[in-house]
Design a binder for these strands. Structure first.
Length: 123
DNA sequence: CCCATGACCACAA
DNA sequence: ATTGTGGCCATGG
């Protein structure tokens, strides 16, 4: 079990929907780190599928184990998805609780805290 | 079945 | 730098 991601890659057919793959990747995001929708999509092989990543997050709340959707922001490091959380401040508070500074829905040192899913990918 | 929307991103002008 | 448009796939009316 050295490979946390294992075979989430669509080699052949989608055993686990694109959604499942997204959830897997999001769970790999280290605490105090963040990534972007596009980065996840690109890591999955579909650079342009960033929209689906966000769409997948829409149901992440009811998915187990818990998916740290608050660690996923847009390309600008902006908390675009905060509106989908229980409260408009939930996402920011979760990030700040992990040491991520957020000002005006903007992640500080975004580029520095950015975590590339490809780094964890074992392919 | 067709149309519209969506937690996005990249490119062209 | 800003604006507009296309694309991606899924879900809902």
């Amino acid at each position: 079990m050295s490979s946390p991601l294992k075979k989430i890659k669509p080699s052949g057919k989608a055993d686990d929907s694109f959604f499942a793959a997204v959830y897997e990747v999001v769970r790999q995001i280290p605490r105090g780190r963040i990534t972007s929708y596009g980065a996840i999509a690109e890591a999955l092989g579909s650079r342009s599928s960033a929209r689906m990543v966000g769409w997948a997050m829409n149901g992440a709340h009811q998915v187990q184990p818990s998916v740290p959707a608050h660690r996923v922001v847009n390309r600008q490091g902006l908390l675009t998805g905060k509106i989908h959380f229980a409260t408009p401040t939930q996402m920011q508070e979760l990030l700040e609780a992990e040491g991520v500074q957020v000002i005006d829905d903007q992640v500080q040192d975004f580029q520095q805290l950015f975590w590339d899913p490809k780094e964890a990918a074992n392919w």
